[in-house]
């Protein structure tokens, strides 16, 4: 019956189910004023509850999940609808980056406290670049790329989901994650620029960072949207109603960010870790730039005409 009801084009079936639901509701209404059998009442309540859920939850578009439509329309549409959250997430990361850069500029004594990875502390950018560019006979990542890629996906998706989930702390947890990420990013960027390794830095970060950093920002966007729903700024809706309106957007942002991080994980393991002379920096920067432009064109413009068509 549920499967039949899901297909509302079968009008006869839908009408039959509706009439059954109305009869069960009517019987329950009569029983509620009588000293009747509790088991019967419970049975009717079960029927009415199930019928109510099926009938009142059915919508024209709820029949089947369409992955392509979700990727090309729903996700960018949701991103644009909650764009304020992305802008705030970006601003928080930029402010954090400025602080990180300031901390590194003021002295290198506290690097251990800022950098989460030891290799960033133990060697200067120039030393790292010299090591990476040293010609070798064998592929340093040979036989480990898929493993590294999977680990990156797992780690980044987890961080992004945490950033979203911590929105339930009135957004404070999300803000802290975004800000801390910004501090690390700003410190690394300034470190490389000051050491004269700007080109290497761009070529290293851009291919995967063009997806990875926006994905984490989208996770943060979700967290800020959740935090705002909890606080209730700019709406007279009740807390439950605010959550109800927000939940589909949050799930979409989480799914979209996870998808982006799968791509970022592949690129980081299979492409970003190769440097000149194996892979010229110009190629890496061009690839990363195309990705970045493509991603934001997709997020800002994809599905726009179809949305307008639906609204009209």
């Amino acid at each position: 019956m549920r499967e039949g009801l899901a297909d509302l084009s079968d009008l006869r079936h839908a009408r039959h189910v509706l009439s059954l639901f109305q009869r069960a509701s009517s019987d329950l209404a009569q029983l509620q004023g009588y000293s009747a059998e509790p088991e019967l009442k419970s049975y009717l309540e079960t029927l009415v509850g199930a019928g109510y859920a099926e009938i009142h939850s059915s919508t024209r578009d709820s029949r089947r999940f369409k992955p392509w439509q979700w990727v090309t329309e729903v996700f960018p549409e949701t991103f644009r609808r909650q764009i304020w959250g992305f802008h705030v997430a970006l601003a928080l990361t930029v402010v954090g980056a400025l602080l990180g850069a300031l901390l590194i500029a003021s002295g290198t004594e506290g690097r251990e406290a800022i950098y989460p990875f030891r290799h960033l502390v133990e060697q200067t950018p120039s030393e790292r670049v010299a090591r990476e560019e040293r010609p070798t006979d064998r592929d340093r990542l040979a036989g480990a790329k898929a493993t590294f890629s999977a680990q990156l996906m797992q780690n980044n998706i987890t961080v992004t989901f945490r950033a979203l989930a911590l929105g339930i702390t009135w957004g404070i947890g999300t803000i802290l994650i975004l800000f801390y990420n910004g501090v690390i990013l700003g410190a690394v960027i300034l470190d490389y620029i000051v050491d004269g390794q700007t080109v290497f830095l761009i070529a290293w970060l851009l291919p995967h960072g063009s997806f990875e950093i926006p994905a984490i920002l989208i996770g943060g966007q979700g967290g800020l949207v959740l935090g705002r729903a909890l606080i209730g700024w700019g709406t007279a809706d009740s807390l439950r109603m605010r959550f109800r309106k927000t939940v589909p957007d949050l799930a979409t942002l989480a799914g979209g960010a996870a998808l982006m991080l799968v791509w970022a994980g592949i690129v980081e393991a299979f492409f970003s870790q190769y440097h000149a002379p194996v892979l010229p920096y110009a190629v890496k920067i061009a690839f990363g730039s195309v990705e970045l432009v493509g991603l934001f064109s997709f997020l800002y413009f994809c599905g726009r005409s179809k949305t307008k068509g639906r609204k009209a």
């Binding site: 099926e54 939850s57 989930a165 439950r240 799930a251």
Partner: peptide, 23 residues
């Protein structure tokens, strides 16, 4: 797990209640 208004459970609700499990 059911919707608190008695309606059908939406996939987005399942996703969010499980993502927030971490908190």
């Amino acid at each position: 797990v059911v919707d608190e208004r008695g309606l059908k459970l939406r996939p987005s609700q399942v996703v969010i209640r499980n993502l927030l499990r971490f908190v």
